[in-house]
Simulated scan of single mutants.
Amino acid sequence: MLELSILGFLAEEPLHGYELKERLKALTGHVRPVSDGALYPALTRLVAAGKLDQHTEQGASAAPRRVLSLTDLGREDLLERLRHPGQAEITDQVRFNTVLAFLRHLPDREEQAAVLRRRLDFLLTPTSFFYDDGRPVRAEETGDLFRQGMLRVARATGEAERAWLQEALDVLAQPS
């Protein structure tokens, strides 16, 4: 997901490393912080693979800074990642939000809709944090106040997301 986020932010505009890190932190930092030990090796891999260009610019009042921009190969990689997110990118909320953050870069509305349909299909499958003999436990079925809270919040969030996904699919189905 880190590489998808890097490619996605750089598809919008060239950024220097610090700006990129701040945007990554804003996107998922409260849930999954991005360390320098993960970010800079990922940038090095993407540059080596020809997906990013880098050049040095003089900083306004600081030392020179490395500015990164997306190459055509990087854009192709971004679009491929958006067209075909892995199962974890569909089922994990934080990962799916990362896909959503950049899904607008896919130029084909049907491809966008296909990704949203996969998420909606996942959300329509009955599930729970807790099970009784293989059956999902509902909030009303547990006597545990705290588990009940988890289940109620998850249900409300799921209902809101399913409603939004259906609305978005309806919009994407309209002629552009």
Rank of each mutant, 00 (worst) to 15 (best):
residue 113 A to I: 03
residue 77 D to S: 13
residue 97 N to D: 11
residue 99 V to S: 03
residue 41 P to E: 10
residue 53 D to T: 09
residue 83 R to I: 03
residue 11 A to S: 15
residue 31 V to N: 03
residue 24 L to Q: 11
residue 90 I to P: 07
residue 32 R to P: 00
residue 174 Q to L: 13
residue 99 V to Y: 06
residue 45 R to E: 05
residue 123 L to C: 14
residue 123 L to G: 10
residue 44 T to D: 14
residue 94 V to M: 06
residue 164 W to S: 03
residue 132 D to V: 01
residue 48 A to C: 00
residue 143 G to C: 00
residue 14 P to T: 02
residue 9 F to I: 01
residue 87 Q to P: 04
residue 71 T to M: 08
residue 109 R to C: 08
residue 82 L to K: 06
residue 133 D to Q: 15
residue 61 S to F: 14
residue 57 E to H: 07
residue 24 L to V: 11
residue 126 P to F: 11
residue 2 L to Y: 12
residue 144 D to R: 06
residue 168 A to K: 13
residue 172 L to Q: 04
residue 166 Q to S: 08
residue 63 A to C: 07
residue 73 L to K: 15
residue 45 R to Y: 00
residue 145 L to I: 01
residue 17 G to P: 10
residue 125 T to Q: 15
residue 53 D to E: 15
residue 10 L to P: 10
residue 167 E to W: 08
residue 175 P to S: 05
residue 28 T to P: 01
residue 32 R to H: 10
residue 77 D to C: 08
residue 16 H to A: 09
residue 21 K to P: 09
residue 59 G to P: 00
residue 148 Q to G: 07
residue 148 Q to Y: 01
residue 160 A to D: 05
residue 97 N to F: 10
residue 139 A to Y: 10
residue 145 L to G: 00
residue 101 A to T: 05
residue 75 R to T: 10
residue 80 E to N: 10
residue 60 A to Q: 14
residue 170 D to N: 09
residue 31 V to S: 03
residue 119 R to S: 02
residue 73 L to T: 07
residue 158 G to F: 02
residue 50 G to A: 07
residue 12 E to A: 13
residue 23 R to D: 07
residue 29 G to H: 07
residue 16 H to E: 15
residue 154 A to H: 14
residue 28 T to W: 06
residue 39 L to S: 07
residue 4 L to N: 08
residue 57 E to W: 02
residue 96 F to T: 00
residue 156 A to K: 12
residue 114 A to D: 04
residue 90 I to F: 08
residue 118 R to H: 13
residue 70 L to V: 03
residue 154 A to W: 13
residue 15 L to W: 09
residue 148 Q to W: 03
residue 71 T to R: 11
residue 66 R to M: 14
residue 55 H to D: 07
residue 78 L to G: 02
residue 147 R to P: 01
residue 38 A to K: 13
residue 139 A to D: 12
residue 132 D to M: 03
residue 167 E to A: 09
residue 103 L to Q: 11
residue 25 K to T: 14
residue 90 I to S: 02
residue 64 P to D: 07
residue 3 E to C: 11
residue 72 D to P: 05
residue 103 L to S: 11
residue 1 M to L: 13
residue 95 R to K: 11
residue 103 L to Y: 12
residue 174 Q to N: 05
residue 38 A to E: 14
residue 58 Q to R: 14
residue 1 M to P: 13
residue 97 N to E: 13
residue 89 E to Q: 14
residue 27 L to N: 05
residue 153 V to G: 03
residue 26 A to P: 00
residue 35 S to Y: 09
residue 24 L to K: 11
residue 134 G to R: 01
residue 61 S to Q: 15
residue 75 R to P: 04
residue 84 H to I: 01
residue 25 K to G: 12
residue 6 I to W: 10
residue 78 L to Q: 06
residue 103 L to C: 12
residue 162 R to T: 02
residue 151 L to N: 00
residue 73 L to N: 09
residue 16 H to C: 09
residue 160 A to E: 10
residue 126 P to V: 12
residue 56 T to R: 14
residue 48 A to S: 14
residue 85 P to R: 00
